[in-house]
Computed example of a mutant assay.
Amino acid sequence: MSQAPYLEVAEQIRRRIETGELVAGDRLPGRAELAAQYDTTDAVARRAVQLLITEGLLEASQGAATTVRASAKPERFSRIAGNRSDLPYQADSATGHASEVIAERLGIAVGDPVMRTDYLFMEDRRPAYMAISWEPMALTGTSPIVLPEAGPHRGLGVPARMALIGIIVREAGEVVRARPATPDEGQRLRVNAGSTVLAIETTHKTADGVPVETSDTIVPASRWELSYKLPVEL
């Protein structure tokens, strides 16, 4: 049984990359020209290119040409409980209400007030990764740490900030999933929607297991690999 047309086109482009006919930095033709080159439709050509972007063979920034991606090794993304990124970032905080998913992660009721902070981390003037954090307003709403990235205690990180109001964080648990980037994530990270990202769900808890913060960190899989340091108890 023959392959779907977009898989056949993707295989022909993949073979050109593997044989060196196309090298890192080479620009692919536009969708219409590519479709004519492979005697197919624009839709088939677009789907083939999207597949190769997801595989990490091609890359495309918003509004820019699609090019063959350099085969550089992904950068190391270290995950250590309580550590802070040394990359410059933008942050924007606003009050909101807990969705069903966030309410379950924080152990609060749906609709309870939360402080949401959106982060965009930059490297070489290019978006590196993004994160969204939620904290229950019931814990921090009247305290000097209510705004994570403003005021006298901005930028300390969750454990250090919470300690200032007498809340001791003893656990940071994570769940990592690979999934396609959403259109919003693609726009913010300058990657194609549908390209693979690593979604890291982190929740900070007290020794009694009470959640005090939860976050989603979205990392382009083509640029980063995760590295964990875990404590060992004897």
Rank of each mutant, 00 (worst) to 15 (best):
R179S: 09
A128W: 04
T214N: 03
A70D: 14
R170G: 08
G96R: 07
R223G: 07
L189M: 14
E135F: 13
S195D: 11
E100M: 02
Y38A: 04
V175N: 11
P220T: 08
G155E: 03
R170M: 12
R47Y: 01
R15A: 12
T202Y: 03
A94L: 08
S195G: 00
A221T: 01
E100T: 13
E149R: 01
S222V: 15
Q62V: 15
P88S: 14
L28K: 10
I53R: 04
E171D: 09
P144F: 06
T182E: 03
D39S: 13
E171T: 10
T54Y: 00
G166R: 15
D216A: 07
A94F: 13
V68A: 02
G151T: 12
R84T: 11
Q12I: 13
V219T: 04
V114D: 01
S61P: 06
Q37V: 00
W224H: 11
V146D: 12
Q12G: 00
A160E: 05
T206N: 04
V101W: 11
D92Q: 12
A10H: 07
I53D: 00
S99M: 09
D208H: 11
D208R: 12
S215T: 09
L139Y: 01
T19L: 07
L164P: 04
R154G: 10
D208C: 01
R223I: 03
M115K: 07
A70K: 14
V49L: 03
A131F: 08
L234F: 12
V110K: 12
G186H: 02
R47D: 11
